[in-house]
């Protein structure tokens, strides 16, 4: 991993990385209001990682960071699912809908744009799945880039 692309590619990458990450986080957080969600937003954020790796090519060892974030996201997702059983209902029960806490607002009936403080556990699960998908796809890209350079070609 010690190539470097031209100055044009690096400048366009510097300009475009922050809007791509902000758009991905918007897709994750507004998953219960607009089209999108955890998987789509995570894939968009991971594509910014692909852009950075292809343009710059030299990175320090991010493997443990990505792996920890992925494991934390999946564990919190399963914990939120099991919390439905512990609160006296079924698996994946939406225990936070309309209770007035975090993301506990009430929506109006019919077609409306909606508020962000609604949805119960659905936005929380969106954030967890977004963390998991971002870290997993970034880790796959990072490992492929790392090992594509040190691999010997068999003649």
């Amino acid at each position: 991993m010690n190539w470097k692309m031209s100055r044009v590619v690096r400048t366009v990458t510097d300009v475009m990385v922050v809007p791509i990450i902000v758009f991905g986080i918007y897709l994750i957080i507004h998953g219960h209001l607009t089209p999108g969600g955890g998987f789509q937003g995570g894939a968009v954020v991971a594509s910014s990682t692909a852009l950075l790796i292809i343009a710059y090519g030299s990175f320090r060892d991010y493997k443990k960071d990505f792996s920890s974030v992925e494991s934390i996201g999946l564990t919190l997702f399963i914990f939120l699912a099991i919390l439905g059983i512990l609160l006296g209902a079924t698996l994946f029960y939406n225990f936070g809908a309309g209770t007035g806490g975090l993301f506990g607002g009430r929506v109006a009936e019919g077609i409306n744009p909606g508020y962000i403080n609604t949805g119960g556990t659905v936005p929380l699960m969106n954030i967890m799945v977004g963390l998991e998908v971002t870290a997993a796809l970034s880790l796959i890209l990072w490992m492929m880039a790392k090992s594509s350079d040190s691999m010997e070609v068999e003649a």
């Binding site: 998953g31 809908a97 929506v107």
Partner: peptide, 8 residues
């Protein structure tokens, strides 16, 4: 569910 997006 208090969710507007039915797909989610």
């Amino acid at each position: 569910n208090q969710v507007n997006n039915v797909v989610t």
